[in-house]
Design a protein around this nucleic acid. Structure first.
Lengths: 208, 208
DNA sequence: GTCTATACAGCGATAGAC
DNA sequence: GTCTATCGCTGTATAGAC
């Protein structure tokens, strides 16, 4: 017992140089690393079942140190969410730049969305609603982050030659719903690539 | 202080007759009442943010007493989930009995699904995946409960005159995805009834 | 069958040394 | 900037009286 105490003592003040246990893209600063690691764990286990201690361990430091970068777990999540939305928004914008007629563009959008959401599961998955459950003080900020992306979708749908009596709002919800739900069943290496899935969805939603 | 202790003492062993704080359908036995109350709270706040103490209070007893009926919170959730799936399965079967051609039947199914899922939010909402997050020892049982319902959907889709090169599995996932996702945005009293939503989704997914 | 009382674990977060 | 150490709280679950 006394020995253990002594051994523990020796480490006081010495950095432990814990190695991160989760691979993250290189070239990220410490803060970004933590966001990446946290995103990966949230994606894997969900928000509630991922503790600050888990995140700290995976990132190679101790839980107390996280609070040097983030004032709370919710603030950390907000940043993860925002990073995910940025990836999605960027991927979608690039895809739309390929141009084409409105239906082709929607196909590009769907494919890009699926790829971003399904292939970045190691970095983020929750890109969407209700993960840290319900209303909290950051709710408005979550919505803001999401709205920027949803506007891109609305604009793309707005250009389609849909029947005039068909509700665009419902169409968008159906489209995004199927896209987002794919996170619950998609497994890498299956019969379909994310692009296949996106294109298939658009094909099925195209009136003839 | 001494007074408080004395007053507290007087209640020992006496039932407190707490009244349930959540309305539940009449004619349910105690166990079923608890399931109904728990379902309502899970739907409202999510699984993780609903504590056993919350459930007990809403059901009109104390948390310890819950363990007379259920050995764990997860077991209670499993029962809530199962009850929800029974409601959904039953509602869908009834709707399909109206008959009609395959597309009419799919419309009935979608409408019934939406109504069951969206209007029973007071009783259950989570009818679907990943609520108590990820794999646990009851996972197989959750899947079993869900599969019975999904078979009904598969059968109904199987009867449609879809193009032969169109994947039925993906079609089902797209269909159910949009339906399930509606839980995240639907608010009672909006422009659309659950039936509107279901029929709209089917209309959009119908090739011409 | 419901209560009282509490064990015990895990969480988010903070203080202060280095 | 990271550590050690710990506080205060809440959660699930249990034991035993009635």
């Amino acid at each position: 017992m006394a020995l253990m105490a002594k051994e523990a003592r020796r480490r006081v003040g010495r950095p432990t140089h814990r190695r991160p246990k989760v691979a993250v893209p290189p070239g990220l600063d410490r803060r970004e690393q933590i966001v990446a690691v946290a995103g990966s764990l949230f994606a894997e286990k969900g928000y509630n079942r991922t503790s600050m201690r888990d995140i700290a361990e995976a990132a190679g430091l101790l839980s107390g140190s996280l609070y040097y970068y983030f004032s709370s777990k919710e603030e950390l999540f907000l940043e993860v969410h925002g990073t995910g939305m940025k990836i999605l928004t960027q991927a979608t914008r690039s895809a739309l730049e390929q141009g084409g007629d409105p239906w082709t563009r929607l196909g590009h959008l769907a494919a890009a969305h699926c790829r971003a959401v399904l292939e970045n599961q190691g970095f983020m998955i929750m890109v969407f609603p209700e993960f840290p459950e319900e209303i909290n003080e950051y709710h408005a900020e979550f919505v803001r982050q999401r709205d920027e992306y949803e506007r891109i979708v609305s604009d793309t749908i707005g250009a389609l030659d849909l029947p005039p009596d068909l509700d665009r709002g419902l169409y968008k919800l159906q489209f995004l719903g199927a896209l987002n739900w794919s996170q619950t069943w998609y497994r890498a290496g299956g019969r379909f690539t994310p692009e296949d899935i996106g294109h298939h969805f658009v094909r099925m939603l195209r009136p003839r």
